[in-house]
Computed example of a mutant assay.
Amino acid sequence: MSGLGPRRITAAAAAAFGILILTVLRPFPPEGQIVSYALLLGALLAALAMPSFTSVAVTAAQATKPRSAPTTHARPASPTAKVDPAVALKSRWTAACKHHSAVLSAYGAYELDPAMLLQYPALWDLSAQPVMDFHDALDLAGGLQSDAYPADPSDAQDYADAVDILRSAWTKADRFARTTGTDQLAEPDARDCRRALKLLRHADGTTGQERASYLGQVITTVDRLTNRGVVSAVPKISEELATRVQLAIEA
């Protein structure tokens, strides 16, 4: 009976005691004795079989208690990998070399194409601040450029910084030239640029002597603009036009 509650023990003891008194004293006639035995025996069995209030309450509480989610053990975060400064600097230097080449290619499109000179002469206006800044940055990056990764890390750092400046300066100079066009020129000079550009486009649709004639007029106009200080002398463009004339004559 160690598992019984206090109330159940008391009830069972009372029923057992009543049965004992009935057996010893026999206070009732046989019929009443039998009825009394039955009642007390039923009370005894009920006391022994009935679960205690505490057990019922505990069982009910356990049944209604929400199940907690299974505990998961979080893995400790792996420490952040440290980047070797030397490796990072070399990667930046390598990227700077590519960016430098990209700027030179973009600028080369102006230097090698006569149409760019005639459409956007402002890129050769060395009195304009964006153009001056670009040429200064171009000289700085070119002076720090090397074919191989420098032995001195500070040289690599200086070159990467210079290329950053160059990229920004080129963006500003290119925007300045394209947005300005020939607007900063006097009307006679702007007219010469437009006329030479038309002649150049006519030349692209012809061959032989006719093509050479158109190109010759373009060269004359460009020389005139250069002599008047409208555009700076661009040897590469002069060479390109002369080559086109020669090829047209030989065709």
Rank of each mutant, 00 (worst) to 15 (best):
E187I: 07
E187L: 13
I9C: 10
L118M: 05
Q157K: 08
Q157G: 05
A122Y: 00
P114V: 04
E31F: 13
D164E: 12
A141T: 00
P76C: 11
L197W: 03
R195I: 08
V83T: 12
K65C: 12
K90A: 14
A141H: 00
A60H: 10
D204K: 12
P114W: 02
R194G: 00
Q33T: 08
D174M: 01
A81Q: 11
L215H: 02
K90Q: 15
S146I: 01
A212K: 06
S154N: 08
P114I: 04
A203H: 02
M116V: 05
P188R: 02
S127I: 09
R194E: 04
I237Q: 07
R211T: 04
A57L: 11
R178K: 15
T221H: 04
V245N: 06
A63H: 07
A186Q: 09
T10S: 07
A77I: 05
D147W: 05
G216L: 05
D139H: 11
E31L: 14
P235M: 04
A128V: 04
A151P: 04
R7F: 10
T179H: 12
A57G: 05
L117S: 08
T171D: 11
A160G: 03
A11M: 02
A203R: 08
L123M: 10
F176N: 13
Q246E: 15
P29F: 01
L44K: 01
A16S: 05
W170I: 05
D158K: 13
Q119G: 13
S105W: 06
E240P: 03
A190Q: 00
L39A: 06
T206S: 15
V35Q: 09
E250A: 14
Q145G: 09
S238L: 04
A160T: 06
D84R: 00
G3L: 14
L22M: 07
Q129T: 14
M116T: 08
D183F: 10
R201S: 15
D155T: 01
V231I: 12
A96P: 02
A47V: 02
A102D: 05
L39Q: 06
Q184A: 14
V163P: 07
G18A: 14
T226E: 06
A251I: 07
G32F: 01
Y159N: 01
P79E: 13
A196I: 02
A12E: 07
G229Y: 00
R67P: 08
A203S: 07
